[in-house]
Design a protein around this nucleic acid. Structure first.
Length: 907
RNA sequence: GCGGAUGUGGCGAAAUUGGUAGACGCACUAGACUUAGGAUCUAGCGCCGCGAGGCAUGGGGGUUCGAGUCCCUCCAUCCGCACCA
């Protein structure tokens, strides 16, 4: 071949790898292990776009590199195959989600294989496969059958839970159920009517659903919950043990939202009840001039007086109707209603009014606050609006403001807080006031978290059935392990019922069962698990996907854990990555895994954005005007498929044929062409800007695609997709091929390399290794280009240079490298070769330039020969000679080359 | 509002510890070889200037012999979180 034929070569080697199971992971090995993992994809109907492979290419390079470095590498791939889109498609078409999911996976795998990834497909997993979700259900039962030991700070089997004496059977059961890590609770959940399901807090973003952006309302429902709050401290503290991006750690810290403060009791004025509030500033309690309850607070009804009842009821109703989005609108002013009731400030003994307002959230703290308008902006706004008293109790500069115009939340000297406390510093007073309240029984130090327990049920079909039964007398039991997996039943429709019950309830025969312990009739749970369940632990299943006895052997888990490198998107910061850590810690406590954290090093690959193209339709017409002319009309920009656009010029005929709507459209052109507008946006089907890798691969080959995606920029960075530079990478591939060829024939010389050639090689070895180790894969590709340019200009075709170079390039361009490797006369895959090591002696520069200091004063820079002193006082003569010019004939007494490349010469 | 990230030629970007800023690639210009080339090779390519030289890493200031890199401050863009008591 005179030219590199990537089509032929890539097919050949992909077939070879498949046939020989080249990348099969060895279960047992004396080699050190390396576990490199991608966040597995949800197999959507749209197939892969060019953004998907970015992280996959990076991990594949690392996996191939680590193999060459002598590691036993686990590099698996699988599919997060339960999920909403397949179900919504099923609702629309009546087709079973399993069918569409299978078809999508098939397409994904084809697309992945074309890129030449070195996966061990024998370890593939699918979360919707019963042999997989058997163990998801098994983990659920572990959580169900465990409680959190507050003293030991760890999960323990529920059978070891100490139970107080003297309980009735019913009380005893209640006591146990209240402590399970997976438990049921009637709570106000995030209900999304459009999706027909509840959502976890983490799935609600700014009051709308993460998927689809539909409004979410609060609705009380009985739900399965996961007691993730028990692990709040460990999830927070143990972040210190992992090598993760600071931004992700911070997101998790903020989400957990630990704050230190006090819980303070305000007794109602008539003495019948008490309202607990949480405050991070108990030192301002003397400034608490009223309290505010959330409209949903359970004490609202009892504290409300008869004449305020009507107003309170109206406000409560209004609040209940609002969606979270409406409640969170910030620019609106505060609203609220006086309950008519009063409470007693425990420190001042004053009678202060109790209000309700929706700016107090039932879901945070105790659902009630003490308002200190002088030192809290929200309270200040509320107090000003409703004419409530404002009392300054902390002074930052020691003086008291006569007219308070704004809240000052800072620390300073305590004032207006009684003779006993005035003059103290507010920070010091926090401790004192907590001690005082503890002594009085009116409050205590408290820690509060933003983190809520995880709402674990979804009213959906396409998810894991929850393996519990409800008995006739209201008891909830896990099903016996021997009955797992509890297989998802067939149903006549995938539509959730309007009352919020799951589609599983439609199969009444399946729902009816018997309690295996008593033989009495029982009902199955009809809700399913959220999509996160399967992805919470999949990294463990790759170790032994076929093990039907256990989740995985202890030995295998111990050998492979933790995941050494985990690459995926940052969008999972508080979803998958938090849930997975939580489950992992529970499994750790129960002795099923050997490490506290699942993922040692995490890297977030950036998003590859799409460049959307727009056409401009004149309002109420079917006329489209070119980009430069749109200013003259009132136009609506419309997304146009980027595949109909080449360098901003629209293919008008193709556009007309793309939809009947456009068939008769007319166009106003510039210079005979229709110019489209462009904008960088997230790549998505709806924006018509999706570029599939298939097209690139067929034009340039997989190796070029792989290297080009890396060459595009730093892995972590977001970047828009373009193919502007792809020719440069394609040229590299062909140039590299030509180094091995003399015209048509493969031609390699056995001649010994020159020093210059050796230098080029060893520089490349060092650079490649350093770059891959720190995941700077873009500079690594650049390094190869430099090397090939240099060797081309030397016309170097020597085996001693090209053979190690082929190994270096192989993680990036595996197909090309395999072909060259076999042409070089090797009969096994290049992946079984060893990474060459560099030799320092070839890396020395011929000359180097150091700044020179004379008598401690910086003068200039000087060039030294490569063998010039690089340590202490040796080789004075050489350095002295150089220095003579600068010291005007004076002879230097001492030449010192200090670290940091500064030469100091004392004359 | 709070927090984080980023800011370098016409473009994507390098610069690993404070030490020749712009490697490498794209685009562009000129040339060579070609019947031809979307192939290949050679040279040029930050800005100002004929030149010597001067100016340049978002703006301003500082530390240092020396700053893209460290510190302060302002600006812009992107991404999180957002009435969290």
């Amino acid at each position: 071949m005179s030219e590199y034929n990537f089509r032929e070569v890539e097919q050949k080697w992909q077939a070879y790898w498949k046939e020989n199971k080249t990348f099969k992971t060895k279960e047992r090995s004396d080699k050190p292990k390396y576990y490199v993992l991608d966040m597995f994809p949800y197999p959507s109907g749209a197939g892969l776009h060019v953004g998907h492979p970015l992280g996959y290419i990076a991990t594949d390079i690392v996996a191939r590199y680590k193999r060459l470095k002598g590691f036993n590498v686990l590099h698996p791939m699988g599919f997060d195959s339960f999920g909403l889109p397949a179900e919504q498609y099923a609702i629309k078409t009546g087709q079973h989600p399993a069918l569409t999911t299978d078809a999508n996976i098939k397409r994904f795998k084809e697309q992945l294989n074309v890129l030449g990834f070195s996966y061990d497909w024998d370890k593939e997993i699918r979360t919707s496969d019963p042999s997989y979700y058997k163990w998801t259900q098994w983990i659920f039962l572990q959580l169900f059958n465990s409680y959190f030991d507050e003293e030991k700070k760890k999960a323990r089997p529920i059978s070891e839970l100490p139970i107080p004496e003297g309980f009735t059977k019913e009380e005893r059961r209640q006591y146990i159920d209240d402590r399970r890590l997976a438990y049921q609770d009637e709570i106000a959940v995030n209900w999304c009517p459009a999706l027909g399901t509840v959502l976890a807090n983490e799935e609600v973003i700014g009051g709308v659903s993460e998927r689809g952006g539909f409004p979410v309302i609060r609705k009380p429902m009985k739900q399965w919950m996961m007691r993730i709050t028990a692990y709040a401290d460990r999830l927070l503290d143990e972040l210190a043990d992992v090598d993760w991006p600071e931004s992700i750690k911070l997101s998790q810290k903020n989400w957990i939202g630990k704050s230190l403060g006090a819980e303070i009791i305000f007794k109602t004025a008539e003495g019948s009840g008490e309202i607990k509030v949480f405050s991070t500033r108990p030192d301002t309690i003397f400034g608490a001039t009223y309290v505010v309850l959330s409209p949903e607070h359970p004490l609202v009804d009892s504290i409300t007086t008869v004449d305020q009842k009507e107003a309170i009821e109206a406000y409560k109703e209004e609040a209940a109707k609002k969606s979270d989005l409406e409640r969170q609108e910030l620019d609106k002013s505060k609203t609220g209603v006086f309950t008519g009731g009063y409470v007693i400030n425990p420190m001042t003994g004053e009678k202060i009014p109790a209000w309700i307002s929706d700016y107090v959230l039932i879901s945070y703290g105790t659902g009630a606050i003490m308002a200190v308008p002088a030192h809290d902006e929200r309270d200040f706004e509320f107090a000003t609006k409703f004419g409530l008293p404002i009392r300054q109790v902390v002074s930052e500069d020691g003086s008291e403001k006569p007219n308070i115009e704004a809240a000052t939340p800072g620390h300073g000297t305590i004032i207006n807080s009684g003779d006993r406390y005035n003059g103290l510093h507010s920070k010091e007073f926090i401790k004192i006031v907590i001690d005082q309240m503890e002594a009085d029984g009116t409050g205590k130090g408290a820690i509060n978290y933003k983190l809520r327990d995880w709402v674990f049920t979804r009213q959906r079909y396409w998810g894991e059935p929850i393996p519990v039964i409800h008995t006739e007398d209201g008891e909830v039991k896990g099903i016996p392990e021997s009955e797992l997996p509890l297989v998802l039943p067939e149903v006549d429709s995938y539509q959730p019922a309007e009352d919020g019950s799951s589609p599983l309830a439609r199969n009444e025969e399946w729902v009816k069962t018997t309690d295996p312990e008593t033989g009495k009739p029982a009902m199955r749970e009809t809700n399913t698990m959220p999509q996160w369940a399967g992805s919470c632990w999949y990294y463990l299943r790759y170790l032994q996907p076929d093990n039907d006895k256990r989740l995985g052997d202890q030995e295998a888990i111990k050998y492979w854990s933790p995941v050494d490198l985990y690459v995926g998107g940052a969008e999972h910061a508080v979803l998958h990555l938090l849930y997975a850590r939580f489950w992992h810690k529970v499994l750790f406590d129960l002795g099923h895994v050997s490490h506290r954290e699942p993922f040692q090093k995490l890297v977030n690959q950036g998003m590859i954005q799409g460049t959307s193209s727009f056409v401009y339709r004149v309002k109420d017409t079917n006329t489209f005007v070119s980009y430069g002319l749109k200013g003259n009309y009132d136009v609506t920009p419309i997304h146009v498929d980027v595949n109909l656009v080449d360098k901003d010029i629209l293919d008008i005929e193709a556009f007309k044929n793309s939809s009947p709507e456009y068939r008769d459209a007319s166009f106003e052109l510039e210079h005979g062409k229709y110019v489209c507008g462009a904008e960088v946006e997230k790549m998505s089907k709806s924006k018509l800007n999706v570029v599939s890798p298939d097209h690139i691969v067929s034009k340039y080959g997989a190796d070029t695609m792989r290297m080009y995606e890396m060459f595009l920029g730093p892995l972590e960075q977001n970047k828009p997709w373009n193919t502007n530079g792809i020719d440069g990478v394609f040229k590299f591939i062909r140039k590299f091929w030509r180094l091995f060829h003399d015209g048509e024939t493969f031609s390699i010389s056995g001649e010994a390399p020159t020093a210059a050639e050796m230098k080029i090689l060893h520089k490349t070895i060092k650079k490649t290794q350093d770059d891959i180790e720190r995941l700077s894969l873009n500079t690594s590709v650049s390094g190869f280009m430099i090397t090939v340019n240099e060797l081309s200009s030397l016309k170097c075709n020597k085996r001693a240079i090209l053979e190690p170079l082929t190994i270096l390039v192989s993680p990036f361009a595996p197909h090309l490298s395999e072909e060259l490797w076999s042409l070089l006369g090797h009969s096994t895959s290049i992946s079984e070769a060893s990474m060459p090591t560099h030799d320092e002696q070839y890396l020395k520069e011929d000359a180097f330039e150091y700044p020179v200091m004379i008598n401690g004063k910086m003068r200039t820079k000087m060039t030294f020969a490569a063998d010039a002193p690089n340590g202490d006082i040796e080789n004075e003569v050489l350095a002295a000679e150089v220095v003579m010019k600068w010291t005007e004939g004076k002879k230097p007494k001492k030449v010192i080359i200090v670290p940091k490349k500064i030469v100091n010469i004392v004359v």
